[in-house]
Amino acid sequence: MKKLFIAVLLISISTTSFTQEKLKTTSGHIKFFSTTPAEDIEANNYKVTSNLTSSTGVVVFSVPMQSFEFKKALMQKHYNSKKFLNTKKFPKAKFKGNITNLSAINFFKDGSYTADVSGDLTIHGITKKVSEKMMFVVKNGTVTGTTTFNITLADYGIEFTKGKPSKNIAKDVKITAALNYSK
């Protein structure tokens, strides 16, 4: 009886690990866009690492903050400095969350799916709960995830009250991400 129990246990463990398919990328793209009457500012980052476990719906992102590239060198310098993102102290932004409507998504069948993703977003050392939509397109075994949402900079301790930044940088910036997952 005990042997049978162990055998069943082993089989269930092996099936679990089999269905725990992990989708990964180390070259995700994230863009942020800020618009004010004074100026439009855009920065791109092509070095996002992300894992997605299709069986559990766990989604993780890691964004190397110094990989954001701005058109203007001076703006990039300001962005990295202590007054703004302080990228030496906080070199990575992270997100850890879950797909809450996992039953509506089939990562093994071609199609487009809208996922509800909720979790903790950490930027500039400050963690906030976020819930956003993410689109998944499954095609020939590859999975592409895209999302667009706004963040309020002040929520993450990035505030400008005077001078040029307060006029040129929007209070809310638009984040767009495109993640090219593979197995």
Partner: peptide
């Protein structure tokens, strides 16, 4: 991080 990353201008 302290050794390799720059804090002033990235």
């Amino acid at each position: 991080n302290i050794l390799y990353l720059d804090s002033e201008e990235g």
